[in-house]
């Protein structure tokens, strides 16, 4: 690690020696530090508009940012290259399958809905034993169809009050 740094500093010295010498214009100045040729100011001014790699010794944060981004990008690329398979799905069958159940085909059951005064015929659509839809039984004798819709509307009115 120390040898690493020594190598690095040597490079930096060479780079600094090769940098062009900037002549300062003493006629026009923006601040008192510039006018008085403050060494602090000069140090900042020479590297002000340089990109972060050239500013290695001066601005450690810039270089670290690049390295960080490179590592992040590489790791994301490698991680996403590994996500090819779709997630695992399970199939859970019945323990004892009821005879009337056919997977994917709905069974309709007729039932009655009592709204306090009338029994209205309803048709219940079930899939694998689970009811998913209730509608009025359109079979004429059951008087369910329109009555059921009417009854629901009434109920809604009552509850909204």
């Amino acid at each position: 690690m120390s040898e690493h740094h020594h190598d690095h500093d040597h490079d930096l010295e060479m780079k600094k020696a090769l940098r062009p010498k900037v002549e300062r214009d003493t006629k026009y100045w923006n601040s008192l530090e510039q006018w008085s040729n403050d060494p602090e100011f000069n140090k900042i001014a020479t590297t002000e508009f340089q990109s972060s790699p050239l500013r290695e010794a001066d601005d450690e944060g810039g270089w670290a940012r690049r390295e960080f981004l490179k590592l992040m990008g590489a790791s994301i690329a490698m991680a996403s290259a590994g996500c090819i398979r779709r997630p695992v799905q399970k199939i859970v069958p019945y323990n004892k399958q009821p005879e009337e159940v056919t997977l994917g085909i709905a069974n309709y059951y007729s039932s009655a809905y009592f709204d306090g005064s009338d029994a209205l015929g309803v048709l219940i659509k079930t899939r694998e034993g689970r009811p998913i839809k209730i509608e009025g039984n359109p079979f004429p004798q059951s008087a369910g169809f329109r009555q059921f819709v009417f009854g629901c509307a009434q109920k809604k009115q009552h509850t909204s009050k």
Partner: peptide, 14 residues
């Protein structure tokens, strides 16, 4: 149930 429905059912444990 494969001849009746669109799913090919995994058999029940029974």
């Amino acid at each position: 149930q494969i001849e009746r429905t669109k799913h090919a059912n995994i058999p029940a444990l029974s």
